[in-house]
Amino acid sequence: MASPQDSAPSLGKVIVIGGCGFLGHHIVKLLAERHPQTQISVLDLRTNSNRLPSPNVSYHEVDITNYDQIQSLFSQIKPDGVIHTAATHAFIKSKEIMDNVNVGGTKNLLKAAQETGVKAFVYTSSASVVLSPKTELVNADETWPLVTGDAQPEYYTTTKAFAETAVLEANRTPSGFLTCAIRPAGIFGEGDVQLLPPIVHAYWNKQTRFQIGPNENLFDFTYVGNVAHGHLLALQALLHSHKIMPTVPLDTERVDGEVFFITNGQPVYFWDFARAVWHEAGDRLPLNKVWELDPGFAFAIGGILEAAFGLMGRKPKLTRAQARYSTMNKYHSIDKAKRRLGYAPVVDLDEGIRRGVQHILRQAEAEKEKKSQ
């Protein structure tokens, strides 16, 4: 008798751009688990990490800023669907590199997809595309305007917004090419290199006695498995819409040409998340031992550290952006994703924190054993 997995429908041929990265490899893993008959091609600049040992997954080293490489590989594979997660690191200094990879690379992928008959294209955007330093996000939804250019202090975010716009404008050009964008917020989990590791290291460095502000601001953090789940739901929805063409879904049901916030749907007070991470790592410091730093003071210190570390070409542990975001509300509505994608988080916040922190602890223990040998 066939197992439920064996009977799961194949999604045809799917390319995951950036499939060796943090989010990308979780998408590849979930796609292989849920749709084992699907042929998955992973495209990344380097493919020596986060590889999935599966006969249905192939790996290809490609530079998305090189259109000829992309077009050649797309012509060979002839994918039905594309999930594009690749981007530069947010803290890279070169605006030119950000433009070339985040915007130019996305446009290269769109062009190759349009020319080779791709049916569905899902882009990983960012919830921060609607974030400005002056406006807090309180249950923000997809009707909020993009914040770019001079109004957006984070140039990385501007490039993500421009790439998202290009993806949506490409929808139905040609008519059988369907696109959408996913906007995750505060991704963390196994393999995370930006969110959980600095928090755990703060515990190891005995820095859990401090917090910035009174901890009254709600913040969205999203377990990576839920973000991967949202991407697969979007891909399936686009492929279904393609199947029923030329019928066009009602506006209230439409997925193509749309954007979707994906979060855990569990906004928490900012420092409560950090303390939950510290507790999972072993911290038992009582709250009455925590010192509250003035936000203005922390912002000023962040500026001084940025200047000092900038001279050395390094990034400090406290920046002005971190000081600002740790005291502002930043959470989003996922009602649209629930209605149109059928999205609901599959892993809650506590379990996500447990998985992510335990992964870091296992890595640290393995490294310790390696050094002792």
Rank of each mutant, 00 (worst) to 15 (best):
N226V: 02
Y156N: 08
G191L: 07
H201V: 03
L238K: 04
L239M: 10
F219Q: 15
V224P: 05
Y203C: 00
I199E: 02
T159D: 02
E216A: 08
L196K: 10
L235A: 07
Q211F: 01
Q211W: 03
G213T: 03
R209A: 14
N217H: 09
H240L: 10
H240E: 14
H201K: 14
A185F: 01
Q236R: 14
L238E: 04
Y156D: 09
T159C: 04
W204V: 03
N226W: 00
Y223P: 07
Q211C: 00
K160Q: 07
F188Q: 13
A170L: 08
G230R: 08
V227P: 07
K243I: 00
K206V: 04
T165K: 15
T165M: 06
D220H: 00
V167Q: 08
T158G: 03
N215R: 05
V200W: 03
L178E: 11
F210H: 07
F162L: 15
T158W: 02
V167T: 11
N171G: 08
T159N: 06
N215I: 02
V200I: 13
T173W: 04
I182T: 14
C180Y: 12
A166L: 06
Q211S: 01
P214T: 03
A181Q: 09
L235P: 05
L239N: 04
H242K: 02
P198S: 05
L168G: 11
V227R: 09
V224K: 08
G225T: 06
Q207L: 14
H242V: 02
T159H: 04
Q194L: 12
H229W: 14
P246H: 05
K206L: 07
T159I: 03
I182Q: 11
M245L: 15
G176E: 08
A163H: 04
N215G: 03
H231I: 06
S241R: 11
F177T: 08
T179W: 10
P246G: 00
P197K: 11
A228S: 14
A181K: 09
F188L: 09
K160D: 03
V193S: 15
A202P: 01
P197W: 13
P246Y: 01
G213C: 03
P214A: 10
M245E: 13
R209G: 12
